[in-house]
Structure formats: C-alpha cells, structure tokens
C-alpha cells in the first residue's frame, strides 16, 4: 500500500482581498503521477508554488515527506524538483554548464556531480550537444534540458508545470517516455497541463480545480465515467424550458436532466441517440433549439461539464 507523500489540510491562500486557494484538502501518494487541471486563475499555479516552497500559505497544514512546509522548508527543498513552464535556463551557457551550476546549488560536487550530469544528459538525449550554447537549441531541446535540470538531484517529488507547451511532437513523445520512466523508478510527479490526452495518458489521478477549490478528484477513467455516454448542453427559450424538462426525462438514453434559465445539461448513456431523440422532441413540441453541444466522454468533456469552461478559456 503506497504511503502518502503530500498531505494538505485546509490550505488557504489570499492575495489581498482575493482568496485564490480555498480550504484545499488533498493527499498525494508516493510514486503517483498526479494531474492538476484547471483554467487560468483556478489556483493550481498558486497551489504548486506553495508546495514548491516558493510562497507561504495563509492557512492550513501541508506536510511533504513528513516535513512541515512552513517550519521545515529547507528539509523539503532537497526532496523536490521543479520543471517550470518557462525555459528557466541560462541560454548562453551549455547544457553541461547549466546542469553543473544547478547541481552545485543542490550540494552535488566532484565525481557524483559529473555522474549525475552525464545521467541527465543521457536521459534527455542531449549528450551530443552537451557543450553547445543552449540558445542554439530548438524549443523541444530546451524543454528537455529544462526537465533534466529538475532531475539533477534525483528528487522524490517532481513538479512539472505545462512541460509540453510549444514542443514538437517528437520531443513531446520524449517527455511522455521520460515521465513514464521516472514513474517506473518510483518518482512522485505532480503534472499540470492543458492537454487532456496527456493527463489521461500519464496521470494515475486527476484533480480538477476551479476558483481555488477542487471540483473533482479521481482517476481519469473515474472522471470520464461522470459523463456516462456523453453530455448534451442545449439552450432553448426559458419560457419553454419547464415543459421540455419533463418531456426530456422520458427519453430512454438520458440518465439525468438539469436546467437553468433554458440551458439544459443532459447526461446520457449514449450521446448520439440521445441528441437525435432530443431534437425530435423539440420539433414535436415546436421548441426552437438555440444552441446544442455534445460533450464526448473524455476529460475535456468532464472539465467543460464541471466548470462550464474550456481549459484554454
């Protein structure tokens, strides 16, 4: 049974009058790849900044590896690695110089440092370009080195913030393989992304955040099951909505119905058949459908269903 590496209880963070993380409770297990999804402003970056010891929380308790985040940040820092969204490297220097510098900051030196540099360069397949200035690299190569720097001290917990943004497909596959390899080696990874297929493919569990709170937390399949066979969003005139709501419940493929001001949320067992039946019903009742959207049973659909927003909003 895996132990929990991170325990978060009642986490709170405010910026001025604005509460950006509100009563967050979470447990992340050792060796788990944990996905954190949410639109901009959802509070996921703030949460990661707190967990990475970059900013202090305003309330709640956090322990990482058994150490208290507020009282013992310098016991936590060696345990964690951060792969930021931006290319946080020294571009005029070579990959070897960058890894050497960051390795020394982690207290590595001598033969161990040289061994780790070679290991990291091999891991991200940059050994051949180890002496070239990073500024001459492609975006994908820079991203790979960005990951290597986060791994130079072999952390127990790795934060990866949008690691595939602006990356070519080949480098993206490299990154997926690295994550899988690191997971196989027992590393715990907290992964944020806008790409649902990445979360579905890589993450053991996914939390969907909005307005500083967790809206849903489960395995990717568990979240997808929330949508059943798919979800239909439809808009009709509000005065026609009440009668339609009762009629819609008689469609066999529709599992549940909710309606606010003429906007229908229909969970189905099979979306295509359900939507055809819904259109036919509206036609029979003489109700004009103003908008119609089918959310397929995937994480993107779950996200839209739960938050009313697309990930890139």
């Amino acid at each position: 049974m895996p132990r929990s590496l991170i325990e978060i209880k009642g986490l709170l963070k405010r910026f001025g009058d604005r509460t950006v993380v509100h009563n967050l409770n979470l447990e992340i297990l050792e060796g788990e790849v944990f996905g954190l999804l949410g639109p901009n402003g959802a509070g996921k970056s703030t949460t990661i900044s707190i967990l990475a010891t970059l900013i202090p929380p305003d309330g709640g308790e956090v322990t990482i590896g058994g150490f208290d985040l507020i009282r013992e940040p310098f016991k936590i820092k060696p345990l964690i690695g951060v792969v930021p969204q931006e290319i946080a490297l020294y571009l005029p220097l070579s990959p070897r110089d960058n890894l050497d510098f960051f390795g020394r900051i982690y207290g590595l030196s001598g033969a161990l440092l040289r061994e780790r540099i070679d290991w990291a360069l091999d891991l991200v397949k940059l050994r051949e370009r180890a002496a070239d200035p990073v500024k001459t690299f492609s975006g994908g190569m820079m991203r790979r080195l960005n990951i290597a720097v986060g791994l130079i001290h072999r952390p127990r917990l790795l934060f990866m913030d949008e690691p595939t943004v602006g990356v070519d497909p080949q480098s993206r596959n490299f990154i997926f393989e690295h994550v899988a390899q690191l997971k196989a080696e027992g590393m715990t990874i907290i992964y944020t992304t806008h790409y649902m297929e990445e979360a579905e493919r890589l993450c053991d569990r996914v939390a969907i955040m909005e307005s500083g709170e967790i809206r849903a937390l489960d395995t990717p399949q568990g979240l997808i099951n929330l949508l059943g066979g798919g979800v239909i969003h439809a808009d009709v005139a509000p005065e026609a909505a009440k009668g339609l709501e009762q009629a819609v419940q008689r469609i066999p493929e529709i599992r549940s119905v909710s309606q606010v001001n003429g906007r229908f949320y229909l969970e189905t067992t099979e979306a295509t058949r359900a939507v055809l039946a819904f259109i036919e019903l509206c036609s029979q009742l003489g109700i004009n459908i103003r908008a119609l959207e089918i959310l397929q049973p995937n994480l993107e659909g779950v996200f839209l269903h739960l938050t009313g927003k697309r990930l890139r909003d």
């Binding site: 010891t53 946080a88 960051f102």
Partner: peptide, 13 residues
C-alpha cells in the same frame, strides 16, 4: 523575467 530566480528559490539556497 526568465524564471531562473524562481527556479533557484525552490532549491535549498
């Protein structure tokens, strides 16, 4: 701007 300070601040320094 490039985020290297932020990266360093997550390190034991």
């Amino acid at each position: 701007r490039e985020g290297t300070f932020r990266r360093l601040l997550a390190m034991p320094i």
